[in-house]
Design a protein around this nucleic acid. Structure first.
Lengths: 246, 246
DNA sequence: AGAATAGTGTCTATTAGACATTATCGT
DNA sequence: ACGATAATGTCTAATAGACACTATTCT
């Protein structure tokens, strides 16, 4: 089956970003407001065209920086910087009414940021709580996401939920130094469940290489001062942290 | 950031297939021999262009049927037919020296087939043992795979290895009816380890909905007749089957 | 003092891993 | 009889889940 350059139909290739963070105990995704048709005025995931000379991960990192100013450290060493990995590719004909667009979605896990509106670009990116975005039909308080972005977001959230089970990725939602309690609140926000603080503490501190004590303490959560940790070298969590049954 | 059709560079979009099976206790991948430059005479993964009017999964299923005659039942109910899921997308500039090609790789798990050469197309698809293909530099008995296909194959094999841990996907390597011992040999071939037959039996038969007894017995493995099962409705395996440490 | 959070310890039911034993075939 | 594989059972160490208790801060 020989290649013939005149043989292949023209495709546009884009990257879309599922950027997740935990703000005030809630899982939030980065959304932009569409300024034009189709889906004008609705929310969408940030994204854009892949350039002729860049690879897919670079395009995703560039779009992320343009929209939020966040720097990434794609796969591998965590912190400082957001975690980025490829999520999946969406290419149904008709997913964009204007032309054939194949979008390579990426998942970004970012530490909680104080700024209500992450710095930057046009369109006004903002953090939106995930539950409202995923509610069927875009129910209470949520406009429906444009294109097939609700599906992409759902896939990204499910990836994040399952990945923190068996990896140390939850630390990507935390600042460089964090407490056991702060890490637990990340799990609780991403999974939407309450975890036993004592069993959680035993689990994460008992896994070699998962947490590295950094020496100081903090009382930013109130109560007794808590030890500060940073993420350790271990990327795999074995045996995994089990997500409680629903 | 308005869309401008004249704005985006032209991409070719292809699907590549990592088709895995277990033959004679060995994990094998489907390979084709390249008939032209570049990489003429070397092995490559089967694949081809996505057509203008088909989605990505359909393109992968079509290519699979063209190369092997295998039918798929992409995601969801298993058997009869191969399991197909999207793997990842590879789009580095220069991964194909002739033009910018973004390839959406798919993973296919197929039951062991008796025919040495799966039916079909030009190029002569054949089953090749995975270890030789993945050996660094394409060592003993193995030509190096063309393009970045060694990387794609490695990613597909790793996906298969990790997915059978927590899902019932290993049954996709088996015929519609199979024994516990045959299923165990699939795990052993995919992971490359030996498992305890007694503990394995207890694990898989003790997980509700994983295996459904179908009534008959077989002696095709020799020894005492073994009960026949088919894959049950349960797709998740919780707690997971643990891959022994290396 | 009281509320809030951190950190450690205890008990139990479940399970993975190692291994013994019996059952039923083909040769 | 012998070798192969299937199927069930036993024992132990490790662990998840439930929960008691103490420690240290702020208001």
């Amino acid at each position: 089956m020989p290649y013939d350059p005149s043989d292949f139909p023209p495709f546009a290739v884009t990257v879309d970003l599922v950027v997740l963070t935990v703000r005030r105990h809630a899982l939030c995704a980065l959304t932009v407001t569409r300024g034009e048709e189709p889906f004008q005025g609705q929310w969408a995931l940030p994204g854009g065209f892949v350039r002729a000379d860049e690879d897919l991960a670079s395009a995703a990192a560039r779009e992320l920086a343009e929209e939020t100013g966040l720097r990434t450290q794609d796969a591998g060493s965590q912190h400082a910087g957001a975690y980025l990995e490829q999520l999946a590719t969406y290419g149904d004909p008709g997913r964009d009414p204007r032309m054939r667009v194949v979008s390579v979605a990426h998942l970004v896990l970012a530490p909680g940021l104080p700024a209500p509106t992450p710095g930057g670009d046009a369109g006004g990116a903002q953090w939106t709580p995930v539950p409202g975005l995923l509610a069927a039909g875009g129910g209470a308080g949520g406009a429906r996401l444009a294109f097939d972005h609700a599906r992409i977001l759902a896939d990204g959230v499910e990836r994040a939920r399952s990945k923190i089970e068996y990896s140390s990725l939850a630390a990507a939602f935390c600042p460089a130094e964090f407490t056991v309690g702060e890490l637990r609140r990340v799990y609780e926000a991403v999974w939407g469940v309450a975890l036993d603080p004592r069993n959680f503490h035993r689990k994460v501190t008992g896994t070699p290489g998962f947490l590295v004590p950094v020496g100081g303490t903090t009382t930013r959560q109130g109560g007794r001062p808590a030890q500060l940790f940073r993420a350790g070298e271990a990327t795999a969590l074995n045996p995994p942290m089990l997500r409680p049954e629903v």
